[in-house]
Every structure is written in structure tokens, then in C-alpha cells.
Design a protein around this nucleic acid. Structure first.
Lengths: 240, 240
DNA sequence: CGCCAACTTGATAACATTCAATGTAGGTGG
DNA sequence: CCACCTACATTGAATGTTATCAAGTTGGCG
């Protein structure tokens, strides 16, 4: 829960062409010359685990693109109840904004590097490169579809279905990023998972144990899950 | 659950300039000349209550803009469990697509009129008018924020908080559309509301009764709710 | 006026939460 | 290097909110 100010700010130009996540990030819509201008308004920032990128309610001065590590996005109720609205991985864009303040909080789950864009400068650049809006629209639509899947999960699935769905979606995204997804790296705590799935830590723990006992998964060292039977998990995820 | 084919298809050009929802719809991004081209690829369609605009899994041949009436958007699990992902009102856009098939179903809650756009033609038009993507991005971002609020509701709020939040958000949107929002028109059934809030019809009914008994609301004729104490409802919605 | 669907109300049950205790692993300092 | 400490995870028992099952009631529409 520390602010981003405590971290190293390195101004780096000319690194974008070699960026490992460029194909999936917003930058994929840019020609080389544009990419250079893009890089000129951007800072590469490294954050330690547990640091806040920003908090709900703060003025949204920066937008981010995650290049390594993982980030959690959440909203809070006045009494402290928390709902994760997403987990972000390399290539993901952070800070879709409708208002001038952030409508959710973002915090690192691991050491993280991000490309940070001052909002005003990025907006000015978007004026000149309208095709970037197309890219942003695509990314936002995709996130919207994910959000709708999550609503189905939160509103209508049982604890077991939720956990199975969660593991499968993490795996799916890992594969999208070019990892093999099995064993699956699960960097978030039981409590983070619980707040993502609308459950308690205890229920998540019990359910994971059930899946372990039933032989669908196996827990490995270092926050890694081995999925022993993907098909089984897919059946569980949809309530079969 | 009937298909849209059974309804009247009226080709109407030149009506857009007078459109009551233009300011809030995607069309607000268009200059008069562009609007005319827009209208030329569009059909105005009227549907009766209970008709499907499209179903999850069908090829997404059309996009829609709702001009009157109300529409429900939902996803289904294989065993029939349903999650509403949204209710749409005049001015709302239907059919943000990431794939070539619809990822949810849309069905009318009342008699409805929509502007219907063939996807391929609209996409071709988007090529020539890139600023439309900006508009689409804004609309998608807004929907994304709404979806995140809904995740918080589904994952972390009690039945009472859910119902209170629901009524307030309906009211908020009615006000945005220029209606006064009190009494509030609630065109959806208890079952629709339940599937939106992740509850059962019985629980929604009981909770509404509670709100009625506590004096926060009053039920009027014709699917109308009078909110007697907005502040009270706002407190309930956030768990105070 | 009567019928059917939607809504309400009641009794019971289940799933997940809450409260509580124990177990485990990673990191720190002696 | 090991013991300790803390945070995280697991397990257990009891409780509670909401779901389920089952009647009734209302209201809209032919």
C-alpha cells in the first residue's frame, strides 16, 4: 500500500521496438515513427510487490501499460469489503477512464514494470493518431466481454465452479501470452482470489483442497498449480 | 423468444437529425453529412415485447442502437442458469463485439425500436470515419465502469444492498436520459431483476417487501416504484 | 368474468460465512 | 545456520443468509 513515488523512474527511449509485449499491447497499432513519439511521452517505471499504482478516487494523471509482473485491480465498499475486478498481466492496459479520477485501485502482485503515460500527453497524441482509438476500443471491448463472463461467475456459479473457472481463465490467459499454462503460476493470495470470486479465503482454501483431493489439480512449490485434468476442470467450471 | 425476422422492417432515411436519443448515442460523433451516410446503411426496426434481437452464439451480423423501449442482455449456463449482464435503454448501443458471434443474448422488455446496422457495412464506414472509434471507445469504457460496479454488487453486497443499488442505478440512468426518475419505471420482472442481481425471484420479492415496509419505497401502478427516501436508499445500497 | 402468469409469503434446507484454532512457509536476526 | 516470527493457508464447528420447495394471492388480459 505504498505510493508509486518510492520507486525508480527511468526514462528510456528506443526500447519499444524490442518490447516483448508490444504485439498484445496498445502499441501494436503504431508504426515505427509513431512508436518513437509514443516512447517520448512515456516513462518506464519499476515497482516492488505490494505497491499501489493508484487508488480509487485519486485524480487519474497517468495511464499504464504493464510489461512485466502482475497487478490486481479492485474496488472497495465503505466498510472495507473488497471486490477484485481484474488481474492484469504483461501487455495489459491500465486506466481506461471515463472520469478524471480513477474508479478503482491498482496494486502490484509482484515486482512489476510498467510504461507510464501522462494522461494529458497521451490524449493529445490520440488526437493525431486516431487509429489508436480503434485499438483502445478493441482492448476495451475485450475487457468488457471478460467482465460479462465474470458477472456470470459471480452471480450464478457455485464455489467449486468459481474456482475451476478461475484457474482455467488464468491458464487461458497464460497461453495467450505464450506461456504453456501448466503448471500454472498463481501469484495472488487466497484472499485476493476470494475477493475476485466473491467468496471468503476459507471457502477458496476448502475448495482448492477439494479439487486437490479429487485429483483435478496438484499444488506445487512457489504458487504453482498443476492442472492434472483440464477437461475435468472445464466440466466443473460450467456445473456438469 | 421469437426471432427478429417476424417484425416490421421499415427503411427510413433522413430521420436521424430529429432523433431524440442522438446526443447520447454513437451518432453524436457524426457531422450532418456523415449522419446521412450512416442513415443509409441503417434500418429502423420495431419489435414487440419478449422478442429476441439475437441469441448468444449466433453470428453477429447486426449491431443496434436502441431508440425506444428497453432491452435485457444476458448469458446462460448449460443448465439454464441465467445472468443478466445489463439492461439497455434509449440511446444505448448493442453489440460490442470481439468475436464474430454474439457472446450474449438480447431480448426486448417492452415494445422497442432500434436502428439496425449490418456489421460489415458499419465496419467499412468506421474505416472512413475514424473518430467514430473514439466515440465507441468512450461508450465501451463507460460500460466497462458499469460492469465493474456490477461486479462489486454481485460479489460483495447483501440482498438488501443489491436491490437498493439496483433501484438507484435505474433512477440515475433515467435522470441521465432526461426523465425525472421518481416515480421510477421498472419494466423488468422480478425474475429478470433476480438474474441481474444474482438472487432468486423470491428473495427479490421479499427484499422489495422489506423496503416497502420500512418506508423507503412505495409500489405504484404499472411497474412504477416511488422512492420515498433517496438518501435512505443510498445508505442501504452501500451497507450503512 | 375467469384464467394464467407473475408475484408474494411461508417453512425448510443448503451452501457459504463466521469464528476459532492449528499448521506451514518464507524471511530476519541472533 | 537455525530458531523465531509473522503472514498466509488450512481445517473444524456453528451460524446465518439466501435458495429451494410449496402454497397462496394478485393482477392483467382475453
Amino acid at each position: 500500500m505504498f505510493l508509486a513515488e518510492s520507486c525508480a523512474h527511468k526514462q528510456q527511449s528506443g526500447v519499444c521496438p524490442d518490447c516483448p509485449v508490444r504485439a498484445r499491447a496498445i502499441c501494436s497499432a503504431l508504426a515505427p515513427a509513431e512508436l518513437e513519439q509514443f516512447a517520448s511521452i512515456m516513462q518506464t517505471v519499476t515497482l516492488a510487490e505490494g505497491e499501489a499504482l493508484f487508488n480509487e478516487g485519486e485524480t487519474g494523471d497517468y495511464l499504464y501499460n504493464l510489461t512485466s509482473g502482475a497487478v490486481k485491480i479492485y474496488k472497495l465498499l465503505p466498510d472495507g469489503r473488497r471486490q477484485m475486478t481484474g488481474f492484469l498481466f504483461p501487455g495489459d492496459f491500465i486506466g481506461f477512464a471515463v472520469s478524471d479520477t480513477y474508479v478503482y485501485s491498482a496494486e502490484t502482485l509482484s515486482e512489476v514494470t510498467v510504461c507510464r503515460f501522462p494522461r494529458t500527453k497521451l490524449e493529445r497524441m490520440l488526437e493525431s493518431y486516431p487509429h489508436l482509438h480503434r485499438r483502445l476500443f478493441t482492448l476495451a471491448s475485450r475487457e468488457l466481454a471478460t467482465a460479462q463472463d465474470q458477472m456470470l461467475l459471480l452471480g450464478r456459479k457455485s464455489a467449486k465452479e468459481k474456482v475451476a473457472s478461475f484457474l482455467l481463465s488464468l491458464r487461458e490467459r497464460a497461453i495467450q501470452r505464450g506461456e504453456d499454462g501448466n503448471p500454472l503460476y498463481v501469484p495472488m493470495s487466497r484472499s485476493d482470489i476470494a475477493d475476485y470470486l466473491g467468496l471468503t479465503t476459507e471457502t477458496v482454501s476448502r475448495t482448492v483442497t477439494q479439487l486437490k483431493t479429487s485429483g483435478a489439480i496438484r499444488l506445487l512449490e512457489g504458487h504453482r498449480f498443476q492442472i492434472k485434468d483440464v477437461g475435468e476442470l472445464q466440466l466443473l467450471a460450467e456445473g456438469a
